[in-house]
Design a protein around this nucleic acid. Structure first.
Lengths: 132, 132
DNA sequence: GGTAGATTGAGACTGAGTCTCATCCTACGG
DNA sequence: CCGTAGGATGAGACTCAGTCTCAATCTACC
């Protein structure tokens, strides 16, 4: 499908996108990042933002979250396997782990004889701040 | 946000969409259903399919699955809370329940003081048939 | 400095989904 | 059985995220 990366050059644009990601605590859409960069004076094409974000997601450097409108949001997270608890109101995101879920998923997969099982799991709620 | 349903009339189109849904075992996109109906000779507008499917999803009559391309797929399922194990290759879908997951989600929500917590959880893999 | 090949970006393009609004149809009262 | 009010429908324009193209540009390396 794709070589690990015949070469992957650290360009100005990629650096800028990386920084924008590090400067944000919560999930951002590609459009958001593009806007941020533009406003910061960085000239980066929209296509490049999409390409870079995708590449980073594939490389496991960022996490992807599918919004309800089908738009993808990206966030820089810890590299180990985890899930997210996201505030529906302000977008605040907390990383959580669920060993119980992982083993449950494995068990279910075995039971139904499915291989290469992956799972997507996100929690949504209203955080304490947004409730007051 | 929205009245329970001032009135909801059983029209030819809605009946057709309902039947198409019952005739399908796996998740179908709105476009799929529209095609199916058209091919079956039923004249139903695309907008109507979208509207009806959305209304049914809101009413809890069908489950929605977000595809990677951001397209929504619909399926008629049991009314009780459950999740799906979907074959990445053929789309075969199995309904599964995970009591352990539900209680884990509750615990996590309490721990971080989030209210009204809901979760989305889907498992993807390759079913036995597709592996042979 | 010179070059191969990866990277970029403007803009055209795609495809899912939404919106508008004139027309159609269902429910219901008389 | 007919007439009417207002929900439902559908053709087509429209929005918007994301992808693709391809010439120009930049980076790594000799």
């Amino acid at each position: 499908m794709d070589e690990p990366s015949t070469t992957l050059r650290p360009t100005r644009q990629r650096r800028a996108i990386n920084e924008a990601l590090q400067g944000a605590a919560d999930f951002q859409s590609a459009q958001d990042i593009h806007d941020t960069l533009r406003r910061a004076g960085e000239k980066v094409g929209l296509a490049t933002v999409y390409r870079t974000l995708q590449a980073m997601a594939e490389a496991g450097q960022v996490d992807v979250l599918q919004g309800p409108g089908g738009e993808s949001s990206y966030r820089q997270c810890s590299t180990e396997h985890h899930h997210h608890l996201v505030c529906r109101s302000c977008g605040r995101t907390v990383e959580v782990t669920g060993p119980a879920v992982e083993s449950w998923a494995d068990a279910v997969a075995r039971e139904h004889d499915f291989a290469e099982v992956s799972h997507s799991l996100e929690l949504f709620g209203i955080c304490a701040d947004c409730r007051t």
